[in-house]
Simulated scan of single mutants.
Amino acid sequence: MTLEIITADSLAPLRHGFFTRRGGASSGVFAGLNCGTGSSDQTEIVAINRTRVAEAMDVATSHLVGVHQVHSADVVEISQPSEDRPRADAMVTRTTGIALGVLTADCQPVLFADAHNGVIGAAHAGWRGALDGVLERTIDAMESLGAERDRIAAVIGPSISQRAYEVGPEFFDTFLSEDPQNARFFANGTGDRLHFDLPGFGLHRLRLAGVAAEWTRHCTYSDPDRFYSYRRTTHDQQADYGRLISVIRL
């Protein structure tokens, strides 16, 4: 099966893609293109999947770089490929031939590009990272490399949608303590449950930061044939789950 790659016109002409799970070598609960080295999938199979992604991005596998994601707001600059994976949740570069890749399974993968000035970024933005400012800090890091804010395009890839993201009152209180206006990203559910609009929150933060932003409008939870989902795996009581990869390169 060939790889399925979701793209966005606003990131063109730079090569990029939000990869679905289709076209990979993994089997079982990981069936498809599992690129998560932190999963319990077979290491050599994950390596095959990542090689397929690198080939699709026209880079050597060694030039498909990532970070050890920890739900932080930390951003690192990548100037050359390295086997080291710093603890962070976003990367920026202006080096041609490096592909930045983030892994997700419900959280937001966000790809950034200032094609005019040749600066790109990629961020893993779950609720914690987004609330703590990982998106804004990625934009700041891109500016430090020569990007111009009004030339940056940001695209949120497949993420868990509001209807699938049920949370409790403590979660709601955390967001309200940061800004009472954050109540707009919650809808009432059953009892004391609420539904959180993660991509809506991400779009708000990006646009407030002054960049053009969009969401591909794909829900990871609701489409098991195309996407991995941590929450769906938890609800199905499965032992583990695959990780999607989203990549951009100069």
Rank of each mutant, 00 (worst) to 15 (best):
A88K: 13
P199M: 06
Q69V: 05
L250R: 14
N34P: 11
E136A: 12
Q108P: 01
I120G: 11
F30T: 09
R52W: 08
W215V: 13
D192W: 07
N49L: 05
S10A: 01
S72K: 08
F19K: 04
P13A: 03
P81W: 01
S72P: 00
T104K: 05
P86Y: 02
F172G: 01
V247T: 14
T233M: 15
H63S: 14
G242D: 14
S39Y: 06
E83K: 13
F196H: 10
T20A: 05
G189V: 05
G133E: 07
V211Y: 05
Q162D: 08
A99V: 03
I5V: 15
R217I: 05
A115G: 06
L145R: 05
H16Y: 08
G118D: 09
V167R: 04
V67N: 04
A56L: 03
T190L: 03
L100Q: 00
L131H: 09
Q69I: 02
A123N: 07
S26N: 12
G133L: 03
H71E: 14
V75D: 11
D197Q: 00
S144F: 03
T20L: 10
H124N: 03
D74A: 13
P86N: 01
S222D: 15
D140K: 02
L250A: 10
S159W: 05
H16Q: 03
D197T: 03
S39A: 11
T7W: 06
G28I: 13
V53F: 07
E83C: 02
V46K: 00
R85N: 02
D89P: 11
V119L: 10
R85A: 10
T61K: 08
Q162K: 06
V102P: 13
D192F: 08
I156C: 07
R137D: 11
S39I: 09
T216M: 09
V70H: 09
L103D: 13
Q42A: 14
D9G: 02
D114L: 02
R137L: 09
R231V: 15
I98C: 02
A239C: 01
G28Y: 11
C35Q: 09
D179I: 00
H218V: 08
D74F: 13
H195P: 04
P180V: 07
